[in-house]
Design a protein around this nucleic acid. Structure first.
Lengths: 123, 123
DNA sequence: CCGCATCCGAATGGATACTG
DNA sequence: CAGTATCCATTCGGATGCGG
């Protein structure tokens, strides 16, 4: 729900700003991991909790609520559990995120080198 | 520089976590816009400042420093100005970000509708 | 099993003023 | 021109404990 960027400079820049909105949301710490898990199959709440491990239930709740309100994840309440699943929208976004993950893996060495020279300090 | 996520669950999930690292960085509020501007042509500092407008120079500086230390942007100091430009790495990432922007534009109505039903409150 | 309430520390985003 | 320094507000990530 960030106010986001106020500047439609050129068409390309406008697209960039829109991208930022999405990036900032799925960039929340656990969003992508949850999306990845749900892309395999629907999960219950505690099931996700266990699969991830190392985050408090509060955070998981918030993450799921956010994803749900963005329409990327659906929440279905059944008598014995609550089932979370990817929506069609979420499923359509995932490949783009995976692509970024693959890009990162592919360029891992360059990224790391850049970071190292940065740490050495710019002269 | 976030500590990021500690869990390589499955290969796909690992890719997801790596993606998160990238998303969190380019998800910083002005990163994508700066990248978009630099993709057109190199810019000087104040040139970027004017092109964007509405952000303090401090923020612009931080944004550029971060992008530089990630190897996405280069910084070249000349007698009369400092020139920022996209690196090859940055240029290779940009299309993936643009793709996300296009996805967002394409699904804008669905996104908005999801948000509206979320605001109405879940029953 | 699936949350919500409270409280906290850290990171982000930003305004303003000053500097080589 | 290209920043730095200081200071402040907000948001994010999280620990812990209670509740239907």
């Amino acid at each position: 729900m960030s106010p986001v960027i106020p500047l439609p400079v050129t068409p390309a820049d406008r697209a960039a700003c829109v991208a930022t909105e999405v990036l900032r949301r799925v960039g929340e710490k656990w969003s992508v991991l949850v999306l990845a898990l749900l892309s395999e199959r629907p999960h219950g709440f505690n099931e996700l909790d266990r699969a991830i491990g190392g985050l408090s239930r509060r955070i998981l709740t918030r993450t799921l609520r956010t994803l749900e309100s963005d329409g990327l994840v659906s929440r279905r309440e059944t008598p014995q559990r609550v089932e979370y699943a990817l929506t069609g929208l979420g499923r359509s976004l995932l490949p783009l995120i995976i692509a970024i993950g693959e890009w990162a893996v592919e360029h891992a060495s360059e990224l790391e080198e850049a970071r190292r020279s940065a740490v050495r300090g710019r002269t």
